[in-house]
């Protein structure tokens, strides 16, 4: 195999592994948009909050971030429900401007509070998985990334099952599809929105736990992750769950390819171009539902 082919396969495979996690938190972002039409600019900060939470659990108990998933997941669920009821709720259905600004304000506040607590330094954990590699011929993969991918796939599978099979899941899908129709059927928007937003944050928290295994965190991490969630969601189709997961994988693969064949510093540039192309020509993304207007 020529080295180019090796690099190509390596980039594609790494992209797939990293993309699973991108997909995981992008789903949360997409869910908030699909159900409440909220573009949650603070989503990256919520993932970062999950990372710091897992890091804190690690500092206090020495537990591996993977073991911290339940507690961090619950923590973010509570934070999400609180944020929704205290702040976001009053902006549902309001002018985009206000809603966007409020999310931006929240993201600034979360970022600075975390910086005050943990300082501006970059922090990581010594996970058993993070530093070990699976080597297969010329290819190598971090166990951390593999574990993260597996967790992401399990979470997405469970979420999909919940959305398909449970009453709450069905209600959430109904509201996402058509808020007015759902209202007529008698779905209580407030409860559903709260649950959906909490789930969105929970997914961010879980993604934070698996990310911290191989991706050290600093107060700027949220700002770096938010565009990825945004781009993945737009590519997949704003509001589409499967689309967001697919979009996350595409984002990660594009990043890996760019950094392998062009420059790691520019790995995000094609993503922005992709975002613009989708916004301009395919505003409903790959799997988004077209509406009449």
């Amino acid at each position: 195999m020529s080295s180019t082919v090796v690099s190509l396969i390596q980039a594609l495979a790494s992209g797939l592994l990293v993309g699973g996690v991108y997909g995981l938190f992008s789903i949360g972002f997409s869910l908030a948009f699909g159900v409440m039409r909220i573009v949650n600019f603070a989503h990256g900060e919520l993932v970062m909050l999950g990372m710091y939470a897992a890091y804190s659990v690690y500092l206090l108990t020495g537990a591996d971030p993977l073991l911290a998933i339940p507690i961090v997941g619950i923590f973010l669920t509570v934070v999400g429900a609180g944020l929704y009821l205290v702040v976001y709720e009053r902006f549902v259905g309001k002018a985009t401007l206000q809603q966007l600004l409020v999310a931006i304000a929240i993201s600034m506040v979360i970022q600075i509070i975390l910086q005050m607590i943990y300082g501006p330094e970059t922090r990581g954990v010594q996970s058993v998985l993070g530093s070990q590699y699976l080597i297969y011929g010329p290819f190598f993969f971090s166990y951390g990334q593999i574990a993260a991918f597996i967790v992401a796939v399990i979470c997405v599978g469970v979420l999909e099952l919940l959305l398909q099979k449970t009453r709450w899941g069905k209600l959430i899908r109904a509201v996402a599809d058509d808020p007015e129709a759902a209202e007529i059927v008698g779905a209580n928007s407030r409860a559903i929105n709260t649950v959906a937003f909490a789930v969105s944050c929970c997914l961010a928290g879980i993604a934070g736990c698996v990310l911290i295994i191989y991706y050290p965190v600093n107060p700027g991490t949220g700002m770096a992750l938010m565009p990825i969630a945004l781009i993945a969601t737009v590519i997949g189709g704003l509001g589409s769950i499967k689309g967001a997961f697919l979009g996350g994988i595409i984002c990660a693969i594009v990043q890996q390819l760019t950094s392998t064949f062009w420059s790691p510093a520019l790995q995000d540039v094609p993503l922005y171009v992709l975002l613009l192309v989708f916004l301009a020509f395919f505003p409903f993304g790959l799997l988004g539902r077209k509406t009449a207007h």
Partner: peptide, 28 residues
């Protein structure tokens, strides 16, 4: 020309993408 077909939130997202993209390019 690229973004005015988009309304509200889509327009905001497109403009932020252009800005962040230029930031990366300026750093590079």
């Amino acid at each position: 020309a690229a973004t005015f077909r988009l309304r509200g939130v889509y327009f905001a997202l497109a403009t932020v993408a252009i800005s962040l993209c230029l930031e990366k390019l300026a750093r590079h």
